[in-house]
Nucleic acid binder design. Structure first.
Length: 623
RNA sequence: GGCUCCGUGGCUCAAUUGGAUAGAGCAUCUGACUACGGAUCAGAAGGUUAGAGGUUCGAGUCCUCUCGGAGUCACCA
């Protein structure tokens, strides 16, 4: 039982005994006392005035006296307005420290026997990964690590959109203009290679379109169809899609290629396979650079026909209805959603049909009672509809579905736009943050005596910590502004700032160890249990933070919110830095204090490493 | 236009889910190294939490309206 649980139940008992009122447990939850007051936990007594018929301050006095008398772990209290601040005994904190310090898995819950599937990244195969994917990947990865720490078995999956007109454009451009070039022959990272052909297609198409606009046919159409409030440019911009689908020779070729693919044409399939493989190889390199991996890949080329049997079932059970033209719909108006097509009148599936089928398939594959989709918030409506339909279909996993919706990433200049070339490439970004770490390290010169590979490993850890922390610290649901300059900051509220706390501890522990001190000595343990002097405020602050870690992991898992962990780690590192400048460790006043502080340092290092590890951020031993 | 989400110092983000004087970082200014690592710490300045009402002991948080921004409303994916 945690101290907060203990206080909570003691408060409900006390209220019962003092005022004869049975209050709901959630009204007795202690909060952490604000720094400017003395105390560890606070109970707000305003809600109790209703039945106690006394002033909040009076209630707080009575409650405080009762609690201190009945709860051995509470030694004092003070009252400010209606706030009852409770002071926990030093011995409780030092006992806790002693007990958790030897546990490298502190913060990790035992297995809870439940499984959760987390889908993230889910790219298209015609372009390399960009900043948007990076946020997605970091969120998904961190969530999977956090859920695992919270006791779940986690299955990490992604759904790859490997088919459709987009990849056909890359294929066609390569076929027409590539002259057999390969990533190897051009020295290009293979996913970028494929992306370049996609760009080439768009360029060729634009050229073709521009020429056509000046032609007799184009001018004639303009004269006939242009609306009064349109200038020529906007007209042709709006018409582009129609031109691609009806008039363009290149468009025709691309669509024919898609038809060949759907018909299973061997040559087309072979080309498709070859180009997709290039993309996968490139993605894999990026995943590795980011330090993430997946347990299972689902490919849309395998799943895009799924879901039709579900439509049949839904029709039979009355969840769906059929229109005269043969199309099948779900009426979700009573859930404030709308009517939604689940099958076209020609009997082919739409996007959501495939999602219905894929959900079922995954459940059959893994039997996970929870499924999390990490997808940008532009698809909020889609997931509302999807989940509502699955619920109505009575799927056993429907209650465990969750859309981890995250906001788009903007640049200081505004939205990322591929057409304007403002998309931030993932590989470039990674290289850039590491280069920045290298520059900063040069000025410091702390790691010059290490071997080159050791140095590079550290610089990689620092650069990635800066990037990852900068993105993960933001609440997922919020749209965020990503300033590349700020993402490589190494000072302040950053990943490296937290790494630095860890490195400082490691340095102290090395020195302690060099002088023959071992913090695990039982004699030191005994000293910790009987501290000669009271625990200093800076120490107390740190221990209190450590104590909060397991609960923070649980909350982060329950909310699928890695930013919770990021903020926790920052607070802990900040508290450590303060402790470090205020108090001496190796030159502490007494041997007991020295042992205590070393133990505390080791515990902080351990939690920092675990916590940052949950975010996919590695800790260097030096920097 | 309908629906959904968002609006917090110059900038980027917090706020223990309705609690105390709204906290951090960046940028600006000032101070702290013959120190266990200065990628640090301490301090100053900067706020009518977009605006107006309301609910209550108490509102950045809940309700209503206004303003501003975003997303979404395909037999696309």
């Amino acid at each position: 039982m945690t101290i907060t649980d203990l206080i909570q139940s003691a408060v409900t008992t006390a209220i019962q005994e003092l005022y004869g009122e049975a209050i709901p447990a959630e009204q007795a939850i202690p909060t952490v006392t604000r720094k400017e007051f003395e105390g560890d936990y606070t109970i707000v007594t305003f809600p109790f005035t209703r039945f106690a018929k006394k002033k909040p301050g009076e209630i707080a006095e009575e409650l405080g006296a009762h609690l201190v008398k009945n709860v051995p772990q509470l030694v004092r209290f003070n009252v400010v307005q209606g706030f009852l601040n409770l002071v926990v005994a030093d011995s409780f904190w030092s006992d806790f420290l002693l007990q958790m310090a030897g546990n490298p898995d502190f913060g990790r819950a035992p297995k809870n026997g439940k499984k959760v599937m987390i889908e993230f990244c889910s790219p298209n195969t015609n372009k390399p990964l960009h900043l948007g994917h990076v946020r997605n990947i970091l969120l998904g990865w961190a969530c999977s690590q956090i859920c695992e720490a919270a006791g779940y078995d986690v299955v990490k999956v992604q759904v790859i959109n490997d088919r459709g007109i987009a990849i056909c454009k890359s294929m066609l451009a390569w076929q027409k203009f590539g002259e057999g070039a390969t990533p190897e022959s051009t020295g290009t990272k293979s996913d970028h290679f494929v992306g370049d052909w996609y760009v080439r297609f768009e360029q060729e198409f634009q050229d073709e379109y521009r020429t056509w606009q000046g032609s007799g046919a184009g001018q004639q159409l303009l004269a006939e169809k242009r609306k009064a409030d349109q200038d020529d440019k906007t007209f042709f911009k709006d018409y582009k899609n129609t031109y691609f689908n009806t008039t363009s020779p290149l468009g025709k070729e691309a669509r024919e290629m898609l038809l060949l693919w759907e018909a299973g044409d061997p040559d087309t399939k072979a080309l498709w396979q070859r180009m997709n493989q290039w993309v996968y190889d490139g993605f894999e390199a990026t995943y590795e650079a980011l330090g993430v991996n997946f347990d299972k890949f689902y490919y849309e080329s395998n799943t895009y026909l799924l879901g039709k049997d579900i439509v049949e079932q839904g029709l039979a059970s009355g969840v769906f209805y059929k229109k005269d033209d043969g199309s099948v719909w779900a009426d979700l108006t009573d859930a404030k959603l709308d009517h939604k097509v689940v099958m076209r009148s020609d009997g082919t599936s739409v996007y959501i049909t495939q999602d219905l089928g894929t959900a079922q398939m995954r459940y059959q594959d893994f039997g996970t009672e929870k499924m999390v989709y990490v997808v940008a918030d532009e698809q909020n409506y889609h997931f509302q509809v999807l989940f509502e339909i699955l619920k109505r279909l009575g799927e056993p996993y429907a209650a465990g579905l969750h859309h981890l919706s995250y906001g788009m990433v903007d640049l200081p200049s505004g939205k990322m736009k591929s057409r304007e070339g403002t998309v931030v490439d993932a590989d470039d970004l990674i290289a850039e943050v590491i280069a920045e770490a290298r520059e900063a390290s040069k000025e410091r010169g702390e790691i010059v005596e290490l071997t080159k590979p050791e140095q590079e490993d550290i610089l990689r850890k620092i650069g990635l910590a800066a990037l990852k922390f900068h993105i993960i610290k933001v609440t997922p649901q919020k749209r965020m502004v990503f300033d590349p300059k700020e993402s490589v900051d190494l000072q302040g509220q950053t990943g490296p700032h937290i790494q630095y706390a860890y490195v400082r501890i490691k340095s102290v522990l090395r020195k302690a160890s060099d002088s023959g001190l071992r913090i695990a000595d039982s004699g030191l343990g005994a000293a910790i249990r009987n501290p000669q002097s009271a625990i200093e405020p800076q120490e107390r602050e740190l221990i209190g933070q450590l104590y909060r870690f397991p609960a923070t992991v649980q909350v982060a898992a329950a909310n699928y919110d890695p930013s919770e962990i990021a903020n926790y780690c920052y607070d802990l590192a900040k508290a450590f830095h303060r402790f470090f400048t205020d108090l001496s460790i190796l030159k502490a006043e007494t041997e007991e204090a020295k042992a205590f502080r070393l133990q505390l340092c080791a515990a902080v290092a351990n939690v920092l490493k675990t916590g940052m590890g949950l975010l996919g951020i590695e800790m260097p031993e030096r920097m």
